[in-house]
Write a protein that binds this DNA or RNA. Structure first.
Ligand SMILES: [Zn+2]
Ligand SMILES: [Zn+2]
Ligand SMILES: [Zn+2]
Ligand SMILES: [Zn+2]
Lengths: 140, 140
DNA sequence: AAAAAGTTGAGAATCTTTCTCATAATCGTA
DNA sequence: TACGATTATGAGAAAGATTCTCAACTTTTT
């Protein structure tokens, strides 16, 4: 039950908010645009306005329940905050997103920030390319 | 003379293109939005349409003359490609951008990509925070 | 110089995201 | 359970960023 999460964040427990959380939890892709969520809700018969979805996602982000990612391509992407930081690899062919975490990179970032007198708050690391296995194996 | 660069890219040497390159070369910030360029050109009496600026920047990007960066905040940022890759640190207070390059991070990225069967084409690493020296020293 | 090819500017159009505001739902309390 | 204060929602308008359209104009080639 994450009604607790909402209450803790000072947000009323409403139907749209619960449904949006549900979608984020259930999506196998984990990384969804606001429109993705909108469409998935429609498919389930939930007619929740797109404005509400953006509004709620922004509140969830402020509450630390959700992370907003900026991949190339305009639309922001959202994912449930699962408590552990990670970075992303995005396949430009299929759009597939794979997560990774590398302590060496994380540590270097801290060192670089320190060396520059920079108070590091956050960072975004995205690798772009293609998964070999997703390759268009245009076999006959 | 970078008329050569334009010709090599199969682009005609036009006044707007030269002026846009000039602005990118001269800007001390190095990192400009399309609107920044538009305004700077206006200040110099060059009335070049915003659509042209976006169009030309996209062509320059395809030609490898310019890089497009996606910092938080919607607007894309452009910089002249100076031949050497680097990543960015952005001050959320002042908007100041500082560049850095770290071979350890670059190398780890290659290794991670390889381990995931990922053909790495490009990446984006942005550190967000504040430069201590830019701190609002609200002294009395 | 003329023709061919490519470019420009202005505004319309598109896309993503936010705002407005009247209506509706939630929550603490009586 | 009902009440009232507070907060949230939906629809459409609005805003912000970028791309498209197309007639007029430049650049390059012949
Ligand atoms: Zn990271
Ligand atoms: Zn993720
Ligand atoms: Zn790098
Ligand atoms: Zn740079």
């Amino acid at each position: 039950m994450e009604t607790q999460d909402l209450k803790k964040a000072g947000l009323k427990v409403t139907h749209p908010r619960m449904k949006i959380l549900e979608i984020l939890e259930r999506a196998p892709e984990h990384h969804l645009t606001a429109e993705d969520i909108y469409r998935k809700l429609l498919e389930e018969g939930e007619q929740i306005g797109l404005a509400t979805i953006y509004r709620v996602l922004t509140q969830f982000e402020a509450a630390g329940l959700v992370n907003r990612l900026h991949f190339e391509g305009g639309q922001a992407v959202f994912e449930l905050d699962r408590g552990t930081h990670h970075d992303h690899m995005v396949c430009s062919r299929t759009g597939r997103v794979v997560e990774f975490y590398d302590e060496v990179i994380e540590q270097r970032q801290r060192e670089i920030a320190k060396a520059h007198g920079f108070r590091l708050r956050d960072h975004s690391l995205i690798l772009y390319g293609e998964f070999i296995e997703d390759e268009d194996t245009s076999s006959s």
